[in-house]
């Protein structure tokens, strides 16, 4: 059951990710990215990361993607011209490099040396909101606060940069 769900989600994610980078229309790309993010949320659930799965949907698929779409609509860049001409050697080189990367990971995980070890037995409540909250507000309190500061800075920065006339 879990395994087949993983394959479904993974396939969905990979296909839509490919659509993100292969689509000429940025709107379609953005929608494909939303699908990828949803699939990833599903995979998070399989990995007992319940809280993050929800955050993935709310923050990523919700807020961030809305921002993307908003900017795309605002700038209305239109379709990219001829970005995938087969004559272009770049495509070949980049595909090759990506394949090399994936090949490397395959060799790594299927190698004779076991880097990973046995999976720990599951308690079933690893990524619950309660557990995340407990860890975040005790062990990671300071980074959490700093993260809030980072968001504030990004907020101010974004406002400043999009202002028309800086004084």
């Amino acid at each position: 059951m879990t395994e087949s769900l993983f394959f479904i989600f993974a396939a969905m994610a990979i296909v839509s990710a490919l659509m993100v980078i292969l689509n000429r229309n940025p709107i379609y790309s953005a929608v494909s990215l939303v699908i990828t993010l949803f699939s990833l949320a599903g995979i998070f659930l399989l990995l007992e990361a319940y809280f993050l799965a929800v955050v993935q949907i709310i923050v990523y698929a919700g807020a961030i993607m809305v921002l993307f779409l908003f900017v795309i609509m605002l700038l209305n860049p239109g379709k990219e011209a001829k970005f995938l001409s087969p004559k272009n050697p770049r495509i070949f080189i980049i595909t090759l490099l990506s394949m090399a990367f994936i090949g490397m990971i395959i060799t790594l995980v299927s190698g004779s040396v076991n880097y990973i070890g046995e999976a720990a037995s599951s308690t079933g409540d690893l990524g619950t909101t309660r557990n995340i909250g407990l860890t975040l507000f005790t062990k990671y309190l300071l980074p959490f606060e700093i993260a809030s500061l980072l968001l504030l800075v990004a907020l101010v920065g974004a406002v400043l940069m999009t202002k028309r006339h800086l004084r």
């Binding site: 980049i94 490099l97 090399a100 990367f101 490397m104 060799t107 790594l108």
Partner: peptide, 17 residues
């Protein structure tokens, strides 16, 4: 970005293999 990527590939490759 391309050179960065190639560079990191080489580093990973060197590290693991």
């Amino acid at each position: 970005a391309l050179s960065l990527f190639i560079g990191s590939l080489l580093m990973i490759g060197y590290y693991f293999f």
